[in-house]
Amino acid sequence: MSNRAFTGGVRPGGLTTSTEIRILLCYLLKSIGTPLTRQEIENALLGEELVNYFELSDALDKLCALGHLKLEDGAYQVTASGSDLADTLEGEVPRSVRESAVNAVLTAQQYKRKQAQHKAEVTRTTDGWQVRCTIEDLGEQVFSFELYLPDELTANAVKEKFIADGDTVFRCMLGLLTDNRQLLSDLLK
């Protein structure tokens, strides 16, 4: 049986063997240091087009069956044998792929944390779309604004950008309203 992986949906430079994919998964979970759900792993690796969906699913199942990963409470954790495998064979996976995978997971985790604090809701109006953006801290709303936009695509883009960078929007607005030119200058650098 060939160890070649399906490559549909994988960008050039992505992983093309089942073995590489299994090594990457052990490396990723070891490097992140916290359990990851299947969705988090899929979002990171498929979003970066590093692996094929079917190969990823198969690799997760095989690694669990071999005892290199364990699935507890809906999240995968690397075991001691999986950690050893990652240490021994990490060089078999290109460094750029390893770094892309880790960065994708860290970015997704950061976005998830910000999503808990930076809220954005898109609703349809009679003549366009409304985006209501709020920042909450300690259960209290500390900042909010609403924008009316002509189309859903733009409204959803604003929503995603606010979730990712709402703190910068807040600091900019605070700098403008308090005439704090130093704060604005720092933001524009």
Rank of each mutant, 00 (worst) to 15 (best):
L71N: 08
A108C: 04
G8N: 12
A80E: 08
S144H: 08
Q110D: 08
V51W: 03
K30W: 10
N3S: 09
G8V: 12
A59I: 09
I21G: 05
T126N: 13
L29R: 03
A108S: 13
G175D: 07
A86D: 07
G8D: 10
Q182P: 01
S100L: 10
G139T: 09
E42Y: 09
E92I: 05
H118L: 00
L188A: 12
V97A: 15
L153R: 08
K159S: 06
L176K: 15
F6C: 13
L147N: 03
D151N: 14
Q110N: 01
I32E: 11
E146Y: 02
V97L: 10
V93Q: 11
F162M: 00
T19P: 00
S83N: 02
L60N: 04
R124E: 15
A116L: 15
H118N: 11
L50I: 15
V97G: 14
E121P: 00
L29K: 07
K161H: 02
F143N: 06
G67H: 10
D73T: 06
G128D: 12
L176F: 15
V97R: 12
Q110P: 01
G67D: 08
Q115P: 00
E92K: 07
Q39K: 12
E20T: 08
N180M: 07
T107Y: 13
A101K: 07
P35S: 15
K114T: 04
N156H: 12
A75I: 03
N180E: 09
